[in-house]
């Protein structure tokens, strides 16, 4: 038997919601889970074939940019104390920017193209990747570096055979947070201006007082987030076999 507590809690929560929504009986404000699911079923073609791919593309491009740029910055910061001292405050400041306020400016810069959404996604996902990877890279042991030196290792040997594997678990912790945030980022980006995407669809339905259709894409976004999270976990367990085998 696997742990059944969390499914039970979800079922209990949905039941309460269902009950409350039926008693309240104003579907345009509070649709019930069953109504949402029915609406999702009716809209499944539009949602899954038209809007999901648009959102997914934003998320994937955004994440790729974050992974490349985030790890690059992390490696750069770990290469010297001066660079770290210069970059760290800027990095933290970048997370203080209220993204909702900034997003319209991205629309101004990039128009209603995919890039305004990608920009929002990158802005909120690169931070956990950078910080975690950096922490991972800095957790190396001096004794290990010396051992490598006594073996005649070059900097490159040390980086690829020691630093990278050491930082990998931390990198994955960061990536898991980033993946969750990427769904939020893409949705916010679409909310503020788009021609397709689950966030955009949800907002459009709002103007039509179609409560269930507002929630249906949110349901898809949630499933998407969970799915991406599990993908990362799967890859992580594959690459870090040694942790599970112990």
């Amino acid at each position: 038997m696997k742990n059944m507590t969390s499914p039970l809690i979800v079922i209990m929560f949905l039941s309460c919601w269902e009950l409350g929504a039926r008693l309240y009986d104003k579907a345009f404000i509070l649709p019930s889970p069953i109504q949402i699911f029915i609406r999702f079923w009716e809209l499944k073609k539009v949602l899954l074939l038209q809007h999901l791919p648009a959102t997914l593309l934003t998320i994937i491009i955004g994440l790729l940019i974050s992974i490349v740029a985030g790890t690059a910055i992390a490696v750069w910061m770990s290469s010297s104390l001066g660079i770290r001292k210069a970059l760290y405050p800027i990095l933290i400041a970048s997370q203080m920017i209220p993204i909702i306020a900034l997003a319209p400016i991205f629309v101004l810069w990039f128009g209603y193209t995919i890039w305004s959404k990608v920009a929002v996604t990158v802005l909120i996902t690169f931070f956990p990747i950078t910080v975690n990877t950096f922490d991972g890279l800095s957790s190396d042991k001096k004794e290990m570096q010396e051992l490598f030196l006594t073996m005649g290792a070059t900097k490159k040997d040390y980086f690829f055979k020691y630093s990278v594997p050491t930082a990998l678990p931390q990198f994955f912790s960061g990536l898991k947070i980033a993946v969750t945030l990427s769904v939020i980022g893409a949705a916010i980006g679409e909310w503020l201006g788009a021609q397709a995407g689950l966030g955009y669809f949800s907002r459009r339905m709002m103007t039509q007082f179609d409560g269930a259709a507002v929630f249906a894409p949110i349901f898809v976004l949630t499933v998407l987030g969970v799915g991406l999270f599990f993908c990362v976990t799967f890859i992580e367990n594959r690459l870090l076999k040694w942790r599970t085998k112990n």
Partner: peptide, 19 residues
Amino acid sequence: RLGKVGYMPQQDLLLPWRT
């Protein structure tokens, strides 16, 4: 001299991700 002697440190310092 670096790389010219075999050195075995007090802690084994094996890499946990390598078999």
